[in-house]
Design a binder for these strands. Structure first.
Length: 427
RNA sequence: GGGUCGGUAGACAAAAUGGUAAAGUCGGCAGGUUGUGGCCCUGUCAUCUGCGGGUUCGAGUCCCGCCCGUCCCUCCA
C-alpha cells in the first residue's frame, strides 16, 4: 500500500498500545477497588445518546454544546451525540430505569470513553477516558464529604502526592441569582476595561468572568464580590457542615471561591483536584452537586452529587511522580523444543499447562536452541520448559528456573501439578 | 476557533549555507553457536525527508495549500 493511502487514527485520537495498556488497567482496577469499598455499583450506558440529553442538561451556552459535541443524524434522522460527559447519561438511565425503586439512594460508578471536538494537545484528546461516580438521592453534606473522600482515596491510593483539593460552594439558584446581580453591578463599572469575551460574559454567565485569564480581567476579578458572601442561610450551613466533615476526616483542602464548574447543572458544592506537579494547572478530577438536574430531566425531585476525572491526566501525573503501574504481563513459562522433531511434544505440554491457567509462551518460529533460549530470557518468564530428544524418549520435561539457574527433570504427567506449585510461589 | 514550533528508517536520532541525504544508538531477522544466560562479532533491514502543488538547471532546505503532533490562548477531564 502506498504511503499516501495509509489511514491513520483520526485527529485527537490515539491507540493505547500493548506497552501502555496495562497502565489503563491498573488505574481502572484501582478505581473499581475504591468504588467497591465505598459500595458503588457499576452502571454502563451507551456511548451515544440523544443529542438533546446533553443540550438540556449541560447547558446550551456552554462550549461543550456550542462547539465541542460530536452530533450526527442516524439513518432514520434521529439526532444523536457521542457522549461528551458521563453524568447526563447516568441520570437519564436512573430516571428511565427507575433505579430509585426499592432503594432511596443509588451509588453508581462508570468508566469509559468520552468525546469532545477540542483542539488536541497533551492531556486533551477528542476521545478520552473518564471515570466517575454519582451519589444520587440525598442532599446531606455527608454525601458531599464521602464523594470528596472517595476522590482523595483514589489519588492517594495511586500514590500521588502532588495534588491539591479545592472546594467551593456556588449556592442554590436563589443565592446564585443574588450573586450574579452583585457581579454585574460590580463589573459594569469597568465594562470598558474588560476583554471582549468578558463583555459577553456579563450578560450570559457573569460567574465565568471570575476565571478569565486576561490579566486585566483577572485583577478586576480579584476584587470582585465573593460567592461565599452571597450564600443564603441553608447553603451556608451546608458548606460549613461539609468543611467540618472534611476536617474530621483529615482531608486537606483549600477554599477557592473562584471555582466555577463549566456545566450548568451544578449547585452548592463544587470541587476540583489540581495537579500541582504540572505547570499548567489542569484539573485531574472535578465534581459537584446537581440537586436540580434529575427533576429538570423529567424525574422526581432528587438531589445528587458526583465527580469525574480523566485517566490520561492521571497517568501523566503519575508518570511525573515516577509512580508504579504494576507490571506488564509476562508469561510464567516459556516452552522450547530442541529441534523440529520435538516441536509437537512441546506444543502438547504447552496446551496442557495453559489449560491449567498458567501463562505459557511456545516458541514456534525459531528452531535453533540458542535462539529459543534467548527468546525465553527476553520474554521475562520465570521458567523455561525444555522438550528435546532425551525428554521425548523418557517422557519427561526439563524445567529450568531462569532466576536461580537451577534445573531438573520431571515426569510429563506430573508437570502440571509441579508447575502450578512453582508458579504460585513466584507470584 | 486564533497563534507558536515541529514532522528524516520499526523506534530514537545526526548531517546536508539551494548542489551526491542518511552517521550513530536501540530494535527485528540470519549466522558465528544442531541442548543452556542477557555479552561479543559478522551480515542484513529506507528507490528516500508527513501529503500535494509551485519557483529553480537543481528543493529536506524557498513559496502556497492540506494532514498530524506540540506548546500558548480559549476551555476543560
Amino acid at each position: 500500500m502506498s504511503k499516501q493511502k495509509m489511514i491513520k487514527a483520526p485527529r485527537g485520537t490515539y491507540d493505547i498500545l500493548p506497552d501502555q495498556s496495562y497502565k489503563w488497567a491498573w488505574i481502572s482496577d484501582k478505581f473499581k477497588q475504591v468504588a467497591a469499598s465505598f459500595n458503588y455499583l457499576e452502571l454502563v450506558t451507551p456511548i451515544f445518546e440523544s443529542a438533546q440529553l446533553f443540550e438540556r442538561s449541560v447547558g446550551d451556552q456552554t462550549d461543550i454544546i456550542e462547539k465541542e459535541m460530536y452530533k450526527f443524524k442516524d439513518r432514520k434522522g434521529r439526532l444523536l451525540a457521542l457522549r461528551p460527559e458521563g453524568t447526563a447519561p447516568v441520570v437519564r438511565s436512573y430516571i428511565e430505569n427507575n433505579l430509585r425503586a426499592g432503594n432511596s439512594i443509588s451509588k453508581l460508578f462508570y468508566n469509559g470513553p468520552m468525546f469532545r471536538y477540542d483542539r488536541p494537545q497533551k492531556g486533551r484528546y477528542r476521545q478520552f477516558y473518564q471515570y466517575g461516580i454519582e451519589y444520587i438521592g440525598t442532599a446531606d453534606p455527608f454525601a458531599d464529604a464521602e464523594v470528596i473522600l472517595f476522590s482523595d482515596y483514589l489519588m492517594s491510593g495511586l500514590g500521588l502526592e502532588k495534588y491539591r483539593l479545592e472546594i467551593n460552594s456556588i449556592g442554590c439558584s436563589l443565592c446564585s441569582e443574588q450573586y450574579n446581580k452583585a457581579l454585574v453591578t460590580y463589573f459594569q463599572r469597568y465594562t470598558d476595561q474588560l476583554c471582549s469575551d468578558c463583555q459577553k460574559r456579563i450578560k450570559n454567565n457573569p460567574k465565568r468572568l471570575l476565571d478569565c485569564k486576561v490579566p486585566n480581567c483577572k485583577s478586576l476579578a480579584d476584587n470582585a464580590p465573593s460567592m461565599l458572601d452571597y450564600l443564603d442561610e441553608k447553603c451556608q450551613e451546608h458548606f460549613e457542615q461539609l468543611k467540618s466533615h472534611l476536617d474530621s476526616l483529615d482531608v486537606d483542602y483549600i477554599v477557592n471561591p473562584k471555582i466555577v464548574r463549566g456545566l450548568d447543572y451544578y449547585n452548592r458544592t463544587a470541587f476540583e483536584i489540581i495537579d500541582i506537579a504540572t505547570e499548567a494547572q489542569t484539573a485531574l478530577l472535578g465534581g459537584g452537586r446537581y440537586d436540580n438536574l434529575i427533576e429538570f430531566l423529567g424525574g422526581k425531585d432528587t438531589p445528587a452529587i458526583g465527580m469525574a476525572g480523566g485517566i490520561e491526566r492521571l497517568i501523566a501525573a503519575m508518570e511525573k511522580e515516577n509512580l508504579p503501574f504494576g507490571e506488564q504481563p509476562k508469561p510464567d513459562i516459556y516452552v522450547i523444543n530442541n529441534d523440529i522433531s520435538t516441536k509437537k511434544e512441546a506444543m502438547l505440554v504447552t496446551a496442557k499447562l495453559r489449560k491449567n491457567g498458567l501463562k505459557v509462551e511456545f516458541e514456534i518460529e525459531k528452531n535453533s536452541f540458542n535462539k529459543q533460549f534467548k527468546a525465553a530470557l527476553k520474554s521475562g518468564a520465570n521458567f523455561t520448559a525444555i522438550i528435546g530428544e532425551d525428554e521425548k524418549n523418557t517422557d519427561t520435561v526439563t524445567i529450568k528456573n531462569l532466576r536461580k539457574e537451577e534445573q531438573s527433570r520431571y515426569k510429563n504427567d506430573e508437570i502440571v501439578a509441579i508447575m502450578n506449585e512453582k508458579c504460585k510461589k513466584h507470584r
